[in-house]
Nucleic acid binder design. Structure first.
Lengths: 340, 340
DNA sequence: CTCTGGCACTCCCGCGGACAGAGTGCCAGT
DNA sequence: ACTGGCACTCTGTCCGCGGGAGTGCCAGAG
């Protein structure tokens, strides 16, 4: 049995009402609030079909209907007309961003803005290192045997790392190392650097080989392994809106998941398609988040994507509005980055 | 009426039982669980006095007693014997800290460790800029009119900031600026630098005055105004232990407070006394936290203090254990910093 | 074939009463 | 100064009872 237009319309009405009222919606109130042009009895029949197909369900016999994850999915895929931002929202975005001074600032403001506009938990990934390129590498002597390696990328990120040298490093060596490293790596995409780093060691004069090797190790670690990705989080308090009713009783699992950077990165860092991505309830691989939905998208200057951002909320969320906001903010951040 | 020893003992018993069971404690169960050597009736009389003095209260007539904030305060001040850490905890601390690579790493691990050991929300402040001194200032050209200012402190913190110059800056000028700035500021405590920065501008050759002024502005901003303090947070999920029973119904206000860095800094950043500080319920100036307690202390290499750390939990918390853990972790972090 | 109105049924939710349990305050006695 | 006893109070819980909302089904109309 396929779903005709009216059944889809009924589903949309159910989703919209449930999102708004947070209560199971019955056939009668439904025909009252929407102009469906048919009687409650007819709607009931449609509902029976929708339930059989798995798009809605009843919390208990003789209660109203509630959308299932599949229902939300169908709603998002086929029933959502993108809701344009209100002028107020547009203004909020622009006002929020005046006077940014650096990347940290951009990220922090963005995440707060997102949380505020969507009234949900917002996550913003810093520009991914692997998608950035090296602008400059700086070496600063900290003690006779220690250097601080500072890497600056074209996206404005600055990473630092302590390098423990095998022995005392004279000032001149530092200069030399700095020059060589920059010559080879500046301007390169970070993803492309590992072989170059290796070459750097190979081409090095034997007497400096040890030092360069140390440096190379740390470089590689910084580039790929450790803390590759950073992110910012805001709006946790929004989880408590509407009591603990959403999230089936406890915030616990959700809060736990939010503490794991790895999990968050999985959620918003999946940047393959440049389009907005919506994960609903069970579609999240993370068990703790099976009562939550995530709307995420990539951002970056122009058409390139350097990082992800998104929001997390109850499956019962305003998808059209959230999607629109997430997109708008991503676009805005991209423009901001392009200006640098 | 002053409180004799037995009354204090009764108070201690009440606090301990209530912390453990989360239920109002009555006279009978109290004499059963503790060897007080007197009858329930006597305990009841003592309780009446304690209640009159404001140290305990009854949720309802003919219910057991619950400690008030004042009761906890008295307990902490006079009835707490410091609980030594268990060997398991000691081991956890040491194991947690092997292989730290830099300051970010230390801070992140510390905050997670604290959250895990105390099973509460942990906050760790990065070493305060105003208490650190400048190790090195680096200037990196980003474009012809933009420099990246990177400041490295003796505590390992690295702050960066974009500087917009009035016009194109030739390579030579950058060198000159870098040399001058470092000569004047390296080794200085950040709190002492503002006049030095001013001097730097005054002493500058007129043709470079403009550039130096720009740099000075940003320097001053970095040093004092903006993002002076950073911090890390962990263990939010612990707020949900024991249902929403603690925190009188909603986590909302607490989560909101935790989102405000300013508030958190007030909580743990107050470093006047080098001793551990305990704020109980209403003693917190922040309204949102009047159902929470905060245990905080300063840390730093040796005897100096460079930052604060602490935990936040329900007033109904295990004070002796928490205090001991917070202290131990702070000491450990201090040692770690001293090694740099 | 589709839609509609009617009807009986189910189940949740809120309310009030009854009851057991825990704890108290007080008093008289040691 | 402490203790045992006793009456009292309040809570939390369980039960039973409607009211209400919503459903499923069926027979009839277009």
């Amino acid at each position: 049995m396929s779903l005709d237009d009216r059944k889809l319309e009924v589903l949309r009405a159910i989703v919209e009402d449930y999102v708004k009222t947070r209560e199971p919606v019955g056939s009668k109130s439904l025909v009252e609030r929407h102009q469906l042009g048919v009687s409650p009895a007819t709607v009931r029949n449609d509902m029976a079909v929708l339930e059989e197909e798995g798009y809605i369900r009843q919390p208990h016999t003789s209660a109203g209907r509630v959308p299932t994850d599949a229902g939300y999915r169908l709603f998002v895929d086929r029933l959502t007309r993108i809701k344009p931002l209100t002028p107020a929202e547009r203004r909020a975005i622009e006002r929020f961003m005046v006077g940014v001074v650096d990347l940290d600032d951009v990220v922090h403001r963005t995440v707060r803005l997102l949380a505020q506009l969507t009234r949900q938990v917002a996550v913003v990934q810093y520009p991914s290192l692997s998608r950035s390129s090296v602008r400059h590498l700086e070496l600063v002597p900290i003690s006779t045997t220690r250097l601080m390696l500072v890497m600056i990328t074209d996206t404005g990120r600055v990473e630092q790392r302590l390098v423990e040298m095998p022995g005392p490093v004279p000032e001149g060596d530092v200069w030399d190392l700095r020059r060589r490293v920059n010559e080879k790596l500046a301007g390169q995409r970070l993803a492309d650097t590992p072989p170059l780093v290796q070459k750097l060691v190979d081409e090095c004069a034997p007497e400096r080989r040890g030092e360069m090797a140390c440096l190379a190790t740390v470089l590689l670690e910084t580039l790929v392994e450790r803390s590759e990705e950073r992110l910012a989080l805001a709006g946790t308090a929004n989880l408590t809106r509407g009591g603990v009713l959403d999230f089936q009783g406890t915030l616990r699992p959700v809060l736990e998941a939010l503490e794991e950077e790895v999990i968050l990165l999985k959620l918003i860092g999946d940047l393959e398609p440049s389009t907005t991505r919506v994960r609903i309830g069970d579609e999240n691989e993370i068990d703790n988040l099976r009562s939550a939905s995530v709307v995420s998208t990539g951002y970056g200057p122009g058409a390139t994507i350097v990082g992800g951002l998104g929001v997390l909320g109850p499956t019962r969320m305003d998808y059209p509005g959230t999607i629109a906001t997430v997109r708008a903010v991503a676009r805005y951040v991209g423009d901001l980055l392009a200006q640098n």
